[in-house]
């Protein structure tokens, strides 16, 4: 503060101060009573639900705790993760190939890709799994000429059924996601790259695909999280993944519901971890399209802590 005395009267004079800055509005905010009521109702319902589970005598909660880190369960969770990752890799690679085929100017490749997508998206993945599982009924031998020949039942192990069933189904969805991504890139980008003398391949690789990734990555993350859950269907082809592992324990130890809880906990753990991973991946591909990257959850928490003392707006 300045200690110059003669400045004081000028600052305090009413006409000057009103002209410079009008007084900030201090109004009583509208009270949203409906919000308070609905919050109380919802909390009460949640409390009832928790209470029902916590006090249910038939649930052996210690069984859930005991079996959560059981080696069979962990192995099952590992296989769920393994089959999901591998099926996703098959899906992404084949999906990109199908997307490029679908966008190709060659009508034959485009039509074949269309037919593939039509079949694999049009039939339930459960049916597809059973088709692979029972393939030996119509083709007892797998005969690839001089390269490979074996009994179909030896080839179609539960693992192979699961991988092909999930992977080939996923490819159809990935193809549509990739196609949408490639088409979402403005044609001006291709033109600009061509005008600079870049070849088709380089334009695709350096200019189009990196931009398409922004459109492709978020739904692909969703697909993977779905895959983690859909993989429980391979129960049907006797692949010993998480659901099958827990169910087996459940039926022998008369703790069916408890083991389903264990399975749910592991599915939640896996999907939650990958949701966080996906968030950072999306953030990375948003580079260049947003003026400012959205804050990470940690940055948001810090910002919220700072504004905690301040009054909240209408929200």
């Amino acid at each position: 503060m300045t200690d110059k005395f003669d400045k004081e009267p000028a600052d305090a004079s009413p006409p000057a101060s009103t002209a410079i800055a009008p007084e900030a509005i201090k109004a009583i905010p509208v009270r949203h009573y409906g919000r308070y009521v609905s919050a109380v109702v919802v909390l009460a319902l949640v409390a009832l639900l928790i209470n029902a589970f916590a006090t249910a005598e038939k649930i052996q909660w210690d069984a859930v705790g005991d079996k959560l880190f059981d080696s069979t369960v962990l192995a099952g969770a590992g296989r769920t993760l393994l089959i999901s990752v591998l099926a996703m890799i098959v899906g992404v690679v084949l999906g990109i190939v199908l997307a490029v085929m679908r966008l190709s100017k060659n009508p034959v490749t485009s039509w074949v890709a269309w037919a593939y997508i039509w079949f694999f998206r049009g039939t339930p993945v459960y049916v597809q799994l059973l088709l692979w599982f029972n393939l030996a009924l119509i083709f007892p031998m797998l005969n690839l000429g001089p390269i490979y020949k074996d009994e179909m039942t030896d080839v179609m192990t539960p693992f192979m059924c699961a991988l092909l069933g999930l992977g080939l189904n996923e490819a159809a969805y990935m193809a549509e996601i990739c196609r949408a991504g490639l088409m979402a890139v403005d044609e001006g980008q291709t033109e600009a790259a061509h005008a600079l003398g870049m070849s088709h391949g380089k334009t695709l690789r350096r200019i189009v695909i990196p931009q398409a990734m922004r459109v492709i990555v978020p739904p692909t993350g969703n697909e993977f999280i779905n895959m983690l859950k859909t993989s429980s269907l391979v129960y049907a082809v006797t692949y010993n993944e998480l659901l099958r592992a827990t169910s087996t324990i459940g039926s022998t130890s008369y703790a069916v519901m408890e083991m389903l809880f264990v399975a749910s906990i592991w599915y939640l753990v896996m999907t939650s971890i990958f949701s966080v991973f996906q968030y950072y991946l999306e953030r990375r591909y948003a580079r260049g399209t947003l003026r400012q990257l959205p804050p990470t959850p940690w940055q948001k928490i810090k910002a919220n802590m700072l504004s905690l003392g301040r009054e909240r707006g209408a929200a």
């Binding site: 403005d186 001006g188 033109e191 600009a192 061509h194 005008a195 931009q211 260049g288």
Partner: peptide, 17 residues
């Protein structure tokens, strides 16, 4: 095309670079 530069109405800069 290498020897012919082009400037577009909508710029068409590569947004990811």
């Amino acid at each position: 095309r290498r020897d012919i530069g082009m400037v577009f109405q909508r710029f068409n800069l590569f947004p990811h670079m």
